[in-house]
Design a protein around this nucleic acid. Structure first.
Length: 274
DNA sequence: CGAGGTACCTGACAGC
DNA sequence: TGCTGTCAGGTACCTC
């Protein structure tokens, strides 16, 4: 479900709510969500560990602990991390509960059970899915237009498909890839190596702008997404093309088109995006 | 490398 | 009501 702006909103909330707290105990309702290590070891190694800080890399959420280990979450499609009072009832999709010092717990929720959690050594990130294999962080200061331009060499894939590849650029998903391409005026069907340097630079800024704006509005909620306190996002009202099939393009009033590109619904204006 | 398919899961919604 | 099909913010893995 969540892309970079949603994940960023979640970690900001988590930092406010539980940074500096101790994990007392882990209660596992569904072992499937623990990718590494074995559930027993996962539980043992987390008992009595202090949460030093909570950060993000791409769509991964990283808990730095007072130990050599990092607790890593990936929410995939329907995952949530909610901080709730211990006395509040669990919903039926609460699969792992991290009991914290005080009256609150961290709950790992995932309707479709696609979400994953890993407890890995700081120097051994390859145990955490593709975390070790992510492309550049689009909002990083040291990520420059030239770095982006270089990555387009010899890439013949459609630009939309490439933007979704996390080892190409980290953090974009289906919504913000479409919105960034619209802002840049580039068709999602264009082959990457046909973009001019000027177009790539335009796309670079479109990506940074759309992500910053979406973070400012605390992300996009269609149905599931919620931040660490359970609040929905506000960016769904600001989307210009995503989920706007058949509606007027905000720039030229042409009808917005929907088309499958590498298996994902893509929305674009056939007139503004060439 | 790129494209297309399948798989993982569950729920919402449209259409009959 | 209830069945069937399609869709969903993601990613891994497979084959051609």
């Amino acid at each position: 479900m969540p892309e970079l702006p949603e994940v960023e909103t979640i970690i900001r909330g988590l930092r406010q709510l539980i940074k500096g707290k101790n994990i007392i105990e882990v209660i596992i309702q569904e072992e499937k969500l623990i990718e590494y290590p074995e559930p027993d070891q996962f539980k043992q190694e987390l008992a009595n560990k202090l949460i030093i800080d909570i950060t993000r890399r791409g769509k991964y959420i990283l808990f730095k602990l007072q130990s050599e280990k990092i607790l890593v979450f990936h929410l995939r499609m329907t995952g949530k991390l909610l901080v709730k009072a211990r006395k509040e009832d669990y919903d039926k999709y609460t699969y792992i509960i991290f009991k914290l010092e005080g009256e609150q717990d961290l709950r790992f929720i995932s309707v479709r059970k696609f979400s994953r959690v890993y407890l890995v050594d700081q120097n051994c990130l390859e145990e955490a899915g593709s975390l070790d294999n992510l492309g550049p962080e689009p909002l990083a200061k040291n990520f420059q237009p030239e770095d982006f331009q270089e990555k387009f060499q010899n890439r013949t894939a459609k630009i939309k498909s490439l933007l979704l590849k996390q080892d190409f650029i980290a953090g974009l998903g289906n919504i913000y890839a479409d919105e960034a391409l619209f802002r840049a005026g580039i068709s999602p069907l264009r082959k990457a190596n046909t973009l001019t340097d000027e177009e790539i630079e335009k796309l670079y800024y479109a990506i940074r702008e759309i992500l910053c704006l979406a973070i400012k509005y605390c992300g996009t909620t269609f149905s599931d997404y919620a931040d660490a306190s359970g609040e929905a996002g506000n960016f769904q009202n600001k989307l210009q093309v995503y989920q706007h099939e058949g509606e007027e393009c905000p720039l030229c009033k042409s009808k917005i088109v929907r088309e499958k590109i590498s298996g994902r619904s893509s929305f674009y204006c056939p007139r503004c995006q060439q």
